[in-house]
């Protein structure tokens, strides 16, 4: 798979602190990429380098193999965490203005604005000033402004913060649709659970370092702990050389909940066979680590000294 964007050993320092310390990323074409990490990890700095708002101190960004240059601005759409529009400008004019700044011709822009306006039910609002719109409407307008020039790379910083659930779902669908049509999307967020199910690939950033990256499925596999959750009824007394009970909860009417880790070379079926012989099983499932858990484990392993700050920020 081709990479739409590559970051190679990017460094960025501000007067008081280092924002990015040798971060390298590969973002495959036509994928949804999660850029995850606590606040202040360096995500926004990286995004601002990609969007050419600032430059990197060292390292290189490549867009489709070319060194990043101003001609790429037209191929990137950016929805910043801090949303904002010109309040005293009409919706239609505002979209036209922002689209033309991205290099679209007036005719093209007008055409596409019409389509998006209809798609997101904004028709009655086109000639209203932005300040007369509800917050949700404004966010729709902002989303349109981000994707109007049909960028190959769409960067959404904290995409669902501030969207109400209905709009969030609407936007989620639009994002998936955009990927279908060939766009690559970067999600940047500190709320990892909000994008977990959408992302194909992720990179975890903590304290200006990349701590982990790769396809989500693969990462989850790697961080699986061979732990299973069991719910059932009966008296479960597991002292077995092949399993270890991590957690045991007694519930009313003889119900229980256990977390059991399998030892090496033991399969879930072995555990099941054992359980069937001893208790009545109501539920049996593998415990899949969340990205959040993985992040914390990874930080624990690689930079334990920063764990506390990472935890409080998450």
């Amino acid at each position: 798979m081709n990479n739409i964007l590559q970051a190679i050993d990017v460094h960025k320092a501000y007067a008081a602190h280092v924002a990015l310390n040798g971060v390298s990323l590969d973002i495959p074409e036509r994928s949804i990429f999660g850029l995850l990490g606590p606040n202040g990890a360096g995500k926004t700095s990286l995004i601002r380098i990609i969007t050419q708002i600032t430059g990197a101190d060292a390292g290189e960004i490549r867009f489709r193999g070319e060194k990043l240059n101003p001609s790429h601005i037209a191929h990137i759409g950016y929805l910043p965490e801090e949303r904002g529009l010109y309040k005293k400008m009409r919706v239609g004019e505002q979209l036209l203005y922002l689209a033309r700044l991205k290099g679209l011709s007036k005719a093209d822009a007008t055409d596409r604005i019409k389509k998006w306006i209809d798609r997101l039910d904004l028709r009655p609002w086109v000639s209203k000033n932005v300040e007369d719109l509800s917050k949700g409407m404004q966010q729709k307008v902002q989303f349109i402004a981000t994707v109007l020039h049909e960028p190959a790379l769409i960067i959404l910083d904290e995409p669902f913060s501030g969207f109400d659930p209905i709009n969030a779902n609407l936007i989620k669908d639009e994002i998936l649709e955009l990927r279908e049509r060939g766009a690559t999307i970067i999600f940047s967020t500190h709320r990892m659970e909000s994008v977990e199910e959408l992302c194909d690939n992720i990179a975890l950033i903590n304290r200006s370092h990349k701590v982990l990256d790769g396809p989500v499925g693969k990462i989850k596999d790697t961080f699986k702990t061979n732990t299973y959750e069991v719910e059932g009824k009966g008296r479960l007394m597991v002292i077995h050389p092949d399993f270890e009970v991590l957690e045991h909860k007694e519930r009313e009417n003889g119900h229980f909940y256990d977390r059991i880790r399998l030892h090496h070379n033991t399969t879930p079926n072995d555990l099941l066979r054992y359980l069937i012989g001893n208790v009545e099983i109501h539920a049996f499932r593998e415990q899949i680590p969340s990205i959040n858990d993985i992040f914390i484990r990874r930080v624990q392993e690689t930079m334990p000294e920063t764990l506390e700050t990472a935890n409080t920020l998450l």
């Binding site: 050419q52 708002i53 950016y78 910043p80 801090e82 904002g84 529009l85 010109y86 922002l98």
Partner: peptide, 15 residues
């Protein structure tokens, strides 16, 4: 105004 409207970052990604 552009700064407090928070449109600055959008603008900066274009110009």
């Amino acid at each position: 105004e552009e700064k407090s409207n928070r449109i600055m970052e959008v603008m900066m990604s274009s110009v």
